[in-house]
């Protein structure tokens, strides 16, 4: 079940994907990755290693310079806007900075998750069908924030904001949940809460999950598969249960070890996130 090739047809598949940004940075370097249905995958790596870029290719927020991205049978990398919208409806995306519209209520933010299934622009809670409003309430209830439904989103704490963002993704009833550093802006307690929530709802709804994390212990704690990126290349791809700390070390090792200052910082950084053996 945990083998890299997974089931017969992978739900998400990247083949030889490279991405060069207009400023010249090579963010992804010939990445190939198959993700079978139901897998809980964690992407690890330093900041700038290409984790976020990879996630944004899966739902087509970015298009590759070369290579093919296929999700649920659709070629995302060459999809038209209309096809793209259709694919995105099946993919929840959770951002580090939550991406809530601060001045509107939590209920409206959750309702925004239904936009993909509606035609035309919407403004205000009243503009959504009653049935969707009722579902939005249910999703808020699920993340434990039904009492904040009529509160403005910018009055919430960071952990609460991220839970509203998760409820918004759940409104889509997605097959795949992508989360880009979902707990990087949160304190340890909220981090644990939010990750637990994400994991619980994903298992309940049978979702495939890809999460980028830079805290290795969190990644090891709950993922079934760990993929490590360094400088846009896949340098590690393992079943989480058989993973050893030294393997993880390798992900964080700089290619250019001559920059001794930087590697010091890296190892300091690393020491704080991985418990000493």
């Amino acid at each position: 079940m945990l083998s890299n090739s997974g089931g017969a047809v992978p739900l998400v598949s990247l083949a030889g994907v490279s991405k060069r940004f207009p400023n010249g940075t090579l963010a992804l370097d010939n990445v190939s990755l198959d993700i079978p249905e139901g897998q809980l995958l964690s992407l690890i790596g330093l900041s700038g290693s290409g984790k976020s870029t990879l996630l944004r290719h899966v739902n087509g927020l970015l298009r590759p310079t070369s290579g093919v991205v296929e999700v649920n049978g659709t070629q995302v990398s060459s999809a038209s806007n209309r096809e793209l919208r259709k694919v995105r409806r099946d993919i929840g995306f959770v951002f580090q900075q939550f991406g809530l519209v601060g001045r509107t209520t939590c209920l409206e933010n959750v309702l925004n998750g239904a936009l993909g299934s509606l035609k035309g622009p919407r403004y205000g809670v009243w503009s959504y069908p009653k049935i969707l409003r009722s579902q939005a309430f249910d999703q808020l209830d699920r993340v434990g924030l039904a009492n904040q439904a009529y509160q403005r989103a910018d009055t919430l704490s960071g952990g609460q904001m991220q839970r509203v963002a998760i409820a918004r993704s759940l409104m889509q009833r997605p097959k795949i949940m992508l989360a880009d550093e979902p707990v990087a802006s949160l304190d340890p307690e909220s981090s644990a809460q939010v990750l637990d929530l994400l994991l619980r709802v994903s298992i309940e709804d049978g979702m495939t999950v890809v999460v980028t994390l830079h805290q290795v212990e969190l990644a090891l704690g709950w993922a079934t598969r760990i993929v490590g990126l360094r400088d846009g290349k896949v340098v590690l791809d393992r079943d989480a249960t058989t993973l050893k700390q030294e393997d993880v070390m390798e992900v964080y090792q700089r290619v250019d070890s001559s920059l001794s200052n930087e590697s010091d910082i890296v190892s300091d950084d690393f020491a704080s996130v991985v418990p000493a053996p």
Binding site: K86, R88, I91, R103, N112, G116, P121, Y123, Q172
Partner: peptide, 28 residues
């Protein structure tokens, strides 16, 4: 921009995302 990315990620179209995320921000 994150809220617009987030709403686009749910499969919303360009005008949907503009009305939903930009209008509330520029209203005041």
């Amino acid at each position: 921009a994150t809220s617009r990315d987030a709403v686009m990620s749910t499969g919303a179209g360009k005008w949907q995302s503009i009305l939903t995320t930009i209008i509330p921000q520029i209203t005041p």
